[in-house]
Design a protein around this nucleic acid. Structure first.
Length: 230
DNA sequence: TGTTGATCATGC
DNA sequence: GCATGATCAACA
């Protein structure tokens, strides 16, 4: 596997991202000596890791943006044939304890979503992984309305957690941001509080962006492209 | 058949 | 277990 150095600035990062638009995952993988699995069943994060490596993101399990020196987070987004998201987007782990004093302003969700480089990629399972194509990169920052939408959902969900209602939260809570399990398996447990304020063990949860939200980002981008071309 | 809840791999 | 990267697949 070839190691690519980190992009020095935003322009360089965007040039690299643009350079793979239209190419297949196999072409990109081959160019940096990475092998392509038959499918994603046992390699769910493979596409994200591949693009990370190609663009020169510092790998690792640090709780930071992928390009921290540029203040940019990288997210690949599987889309269907008409460019609609096929999956929700994981954002960050939900803090179930020691969360007093955390505000929207200081939250991991706001930090991770403050600036995102979205890379749409064909994701239909009928298309062999190797020949799925990468789309145009979208450098995005939430507008005032989007930030308010996210903040509202985050506050509602965090309020429930702080009130000990974690076991009552389902994926149906939140319009654009939801909380769902995020763990290696059903045996994984972490601390939380119940409604009586007692410490309990529960499944770790994560914040996810619903498809409707990421679809809006893609559609806003297309609208902007069309506006500029008129 | 779309969503919700569950799960897969890896490093430390 | 947690944080990284996400998608799978059971079931309503």
């Amino acid at each position: 596997m070839k190691t690519i150095s980190a992009p020095k600035n935003e322009v360089e990062l965007m040039q690299r991202a643009l350079s793979i638009a239209g190419y297949t995952l196999a072409e990109i993988a081959n160019s940096i000596d990475v092998s392509v699995p038959c499918n994603l069943q046992r390699h769910k994060g493979w596409v994200g890791t591949l693009i990370e490596r190609y663009l020169g993101a510092d790998a690792g399990s640090k709780a930071q943006q992928d390009f921290a020196h540029l203040g940019i987070e990288l997210k690949t987004l599987p889309v269907n044939r008409v460019g609609y998201p096929l999956e929700t987007t994981f954002v960050s782990i939900a803090p179930l304890v020691a969360n007093h004093g955390i505000t929207w302003q200081t939250s991991h969700v706001r930090y991770k979503l403050s600036k995102v480089l979205w890379i749409p990629i064909e994701g239909e399972r009928s298309i062999p992984l190797a020949v799925r194509r990468v789309g145009m990169p979208i450098l995005w920052q939430p507008n005032a309305e989007q930030e308010q939408q996210l903040k509202n959902d985050w506050q509602e969900l965090m309020d429930m957690i702080v009130l000990g209602k974690i076991e009552h939260i389902t994926a149906r809570h939140g319009e654009y941001l939801q909380i769902r399990p995020k763990a290696a398996n059903g045996q994984a447990l972490t601390e939380a509080y119940n409604e009586s304020g007692e410490l309990i063990m529960t499944r770790p949860r994560g914040f996810y962006l619903k498809k409707q939200f990421t679809a809006q980002i893609l559609s806003d981008f297309l609208a902007e492209v069309h506006r500029v071309h008129r």
